[in-house]
């Protein structure tokens, strides 16, 4: 996977939201590692691209951030879902499922002919 951020932005945002939903508050680095792990290391993202995406989500009111201490006693900025964010995860996930389902119909060979 390259830096195709245009394809990325939407999906990356959904991944981040979904991860925050299941894991609770995370800092940027932790979130990036987590996304890689969940993808089974099949995603190799530039960690830097995560931050503008997080900023966008924050500006849109889906997540909020605050400074805290990490497990290793490092100061780090933590992100967590807002109420609006929780609603957004459900909405975006449903939309995504629908999109992939439709796309799947095009990609699998037609059964009834």
């Amino acid at each position: 996977m390259g830096e195709k951020t245009d394809v990325w932005q939407g999906t990356l945002a959904l991944m981040a939201l979904r991860t925050l939903e299941s894991m609770g508050p995370l800092h940027g680095y932790g979130l990036a590692r987590r996304i890689e792990q969940i993808s089974g290391d099949r995603l190799q993202l530039n960690y830097g691209t995560l931050y503008p995406a997080l900023l966008k989500l924050e500006q849109e009111g889906f997540i909020r951030s605050s400074w805290g201490l990490s497990d290793n006693n490092r100061r780090a900025k933590y992100y967590e879902l807002t109420k609006a964010g929780e609603r957004q995860v459900k909405k975006a996930a449903a939309e995504w499922e629908q999109t992939t389902a439709i796309l799947a119909r095009f990609l699998t060979p037609a059964e009834e002919a």
Binding site: H27, Y47, Y51, S70, R75, A76
Partner: peptide, 29 residues
Amino acid sequence: ALWLRILEMFHPRLGDADFDAELASHVEM
């Protein structure tokens, strides 16, 4: 989001420092 971005234009330096700290902590971790 648009409104926040417009507001940001009036204190450009503030956000920069915050993000520098965040990046530094990212790299350290």
